[in-house]
Design a protein around this nucleic acid. Structure first.
Lengths: 146, 146
DNA sequence: TGTAAACTCTACTAATGTGATAGACATTAT
DNA sequence: ATAATGTCTATCACATTAGTAGAGTTTACA
């Protein structure tokens, strides 16, 4: 799990669409402006999120983006996994990396697994509906601000 | 926190020195061979660890490296912070990154902070003495294997 | 039926980080 | 003296990140 600008932008964008769930499609322009994201970068991000099944789009005039599912059905865990990669903080879990000589005897592995479990537990308890509610509670609601 | 090869090598090296605490200095050559680390890369890593105050060196013939403190006084948390950067998984915590428009209203921030706390809790409970004991329990002790 | 406003797709780029490698130098036990 | 050790600086190939550019396609509506 690595929260880069791109994953940060992805999360903010899904939250924005969750806030506007049930309304008209939201344009890239609006999303970009509200979350202060470079518009051409956001285009690519939205295409990714579409491929991931998190958002849908409408083309043409009065087109825009919509959340693909109800915010209560979108878990933070699945989104984070998609936009920020596997939760594990450690290289040795990744298939691309060389294996340890004897990974089963690595005393650090248990640590990384415990951190992963703790992280998953926190993420799995949260849906975007929860985040929308939390966001509405923060007076002013930062997503709308200029 | 990002566990790269370099941080992985650093942890393994400190563990190796912890296992040999109280004995003669361990040479870079031995460390490199036992943990399968490119020797020239390990040289740099050891200089970093020295600057970090984790290890000491003896130059000249029969020189080598030693742990600077007793393994029970070296916490996994401090080592990980040193070799893998701040525990936080998120860009916005880093001073170098642009601030959110209104970071106090960011609904994700609380999530990253909870993950950070959970991670710190796990790391803070472990010292290298613990890891040495755990390592000795794994029969064969991978650090010694060819 | 034209057109403006929207999404779509591919390519490119600058900056940075990662994982090394190379080679000259300094120190010390014997 | 010398061999074995640590020290230091430079360089490099490759991947990732955070964009930018530009040409396309689709659709509502006048």
């Amino acid at each position: 799990m690595k929260i880069t600008y791109k994953s940060d932008y992805s999360l903010k964008t899904i939250l924005d669409l969750a806030i506007h769930f049930g309304e008209e499609p939201v344009t890239i322009h609006e999303l970009a402006k509200r979350s202060d994201i470079p518009i051409k970068f956001l285009e690519q991000i939205l295409l990714d999120l579409k491929r991931g099944g998190f958002v849908e789009s409408r083309r043409g005039k009065i087109g825009g983006y919509l959340l693909a599912k109800h915010p209560s059905k979108i878990g933070l865990s699945e989104v984070v996994s998609f936009v920020a990669g596997p939760i594990e903080p450690i290289a040795c879990v990744d298939k691309k990396y060389r294996r340890c000589r004897d990974i089963d005897k690595c005393v650090f592995r248990d640590i990384w697994q415990r951190i992963t479990s703790a992280t998953e537990k926190i993420l799995e308890e949260v849906t975007f509906e929860d985040l929308v509610k939390k966001s509405r509670k923060s007076q002013g609601n930062f997503v709308y601000q200029i």
